[in-house]
Amino acid sequence: MSRLAIFGIGNVLAQDDAVGPTVIHWLNSRYTFPPDVVVEDLGTPALELPTHLAGHRFVIFVDAVAPSGEPGTVKLYDREDLLSNPPGLRVTPHDPALTETLLLLELTGGAPGDVKMVGIVAAETEMALGLSPAVRDAIPLAAATVLELAERVGVIALLRPDASDSIPWWEAA
């Protein structure tokens, strides 16, 4: 069981949907976390999400959210926000998402003690590489929000001596 898991979610090949994994890359290239903290780019976990989500005391998701404000706006959602969506008719395996997974784990056991989501309002999510400028500019704020949530549960990330501005592999030419 980990104390805290920070998961970036999203398809890195779909423009602003890459923002979750990009924030994880940003955090990992600048900070180190205690060994009982998981900081991971989950990409598009779909049906594997229950496996990843089970057994953590606290989970923070970082994900692109559908247009519901200015692109690049950073929004914070709590467990009730995530659960307030009705689960839906599943047509393809892409459908089961956060809400369904949380509900499933509540039934089987293993649901995280608490869940938050740092959402970044997306502008473009077509299949193409590269974040739109407003979303890219939101990365430091989204990362700072994650670090602050982590601090609230007693997890202090340390600035790396070798902190870098390296770009993730999907942005390399």
């Binding site: 398809n11 949907d17 959210v65 929004k75 009705p86 839906g88 998402a97």
Partner: peptide, 12 residues
């Protein structure tokens, strides 16, 4: 898949 989460979605 594009995994943008839509917190305002009502029906799937």
């Amino acid at each position: 898949a594009v995994h943008v989460f839509d917190p305002e979605r009502k029906r799937l």
